[in-house]
């Protein structure tokens, strides 16, 4: 079942179009910065972007920071929100279930496919950004955010950690959208619901009056991966973010399973 789901994902044009668009956005930004030779001043604009003129190898991290706030979670929400509701809308869900595929197994396969999509998207964005960055801006020893330099091996390791952290952060979105996908038969509703929750969280994170709930908001620690490029690495927010996402993932997946396992499939 898992293999069938992965094949389904990879044979779908939408998968590749969305990943291509995800990789194109940071590339577009890089081209603008390279042509005008002006980067945002430090402290403004997306994280790391101010530093890329000196070092293109930092661009994968900058690229992830560009797609992370909106584009990437929307793409993940679309794939995860479509997972069950899309099959229900197309009518294929009933044929999968009488094939028979156990509902738990179907849910797990959908989750695995969503994780595969997320990781594929994040890795492709980082890889394309590395090629674009080093070609447009050249690479020199990487200055860390704290000022000291990083060896290229160290930098690669930190970038890999960033990829994992961003992927993990997106898993919370995936779990939420997957849960909504078991609730409704309309993939659009599931995707919109997930995005609505993320936008709400994003607004509250900016709002000082909401400071009491901020540590628990799903988007609160998304950009904490910047700390991975400090020397020494500042682990506090990264660890908190990882744990918080873990709680969200567990809660939404349990809810998705509880709902789907006993649901009347009338689509």
């Amino acid at each position: 079942m898992i293999r069938a789901e992965l094949r389904k994902l990879l044979r779908r044009p939408r998968t590749w179009v969305s990943i291509a668009l995800l990789a194109a956005l940071p590339t577009l930004v890089a081209v603008f910065v390279a042509v005008r030779d002006v980067a945002p001043r430090p402290g403004t604009g997306p994280a790391f972007l101010s530093a890329i003129l000196e070092n293109g190898a930092l661009f994968p991290a900058a690229a992830l920071a560009i797609v992370l706030p909106l584009f990437l979670p929307v793409a993940v929400a679309v794939v995860a929100g479509d997972a069950i509701a899309g099959e229900a809308q197309a009518g294929t869900l009933r044929y999968l279930l009488v094939r028979p595929v156990s509902r738990t197994r179907l849910l797990v396969a959908k989750l695995v496919a969503t994780v595969a999509y997320t990781m594929l998207a994040v890795v492709v964005v980082a890889a394309v950004a590395y090629v674009v960055g080093t070609n447009l801006f050249g690479s020199s020893p990487l200055p860390s955010v704290s000022g000291s330099t990083l060896s290229s091996r160290d930098a690669a390791l930190r970038t890999a950690l960033t990829v994992l952290y961003v992927g993990w952060s997106m898993l919370g979105v995936a779990a939420l959208a997957l849960f909504l996908s078991t609730v409704t038969d309309s993939p659009l509703a599931a995707v919109l619901g997930a995005i609505a929750l993320l936008v709400t969280s994003g607004v509250l994170v900016q709002l000082e009056a909401a400071s009491t709930v901020q540590p628990y908001l799903p988007t609160r620690y998304w950009l904490a991966f910047v700390d991975l490029f400090r020397t020494p690495v500042l682990w506090r927010d990264v660890v908190r973010g990882t744990l918080l996402q873990g709680v969200y993932v567990l809660a939404f997946l349990t809810a998705a399973w509880a709902n789907f396992a006993t649901k009347d499939v009338k689509s």
């Binding site: 079942m1 069938a4 094949r7 389904k8 044979r11 294929t92 094939r99 028979p100």
Partner: peptide
């Protein structure tokens, strides 16, 4: 019901492989 972007044969393959 079937996946519209795939051929009939590919649909049967996916369904058979699913369980």
């Amino acid at each position: 019901a079937a996946y519209g972007h795939l051929s009939g044969r590919a649909n049967l393959q996916l369904l058979d492989a699913a369980g």
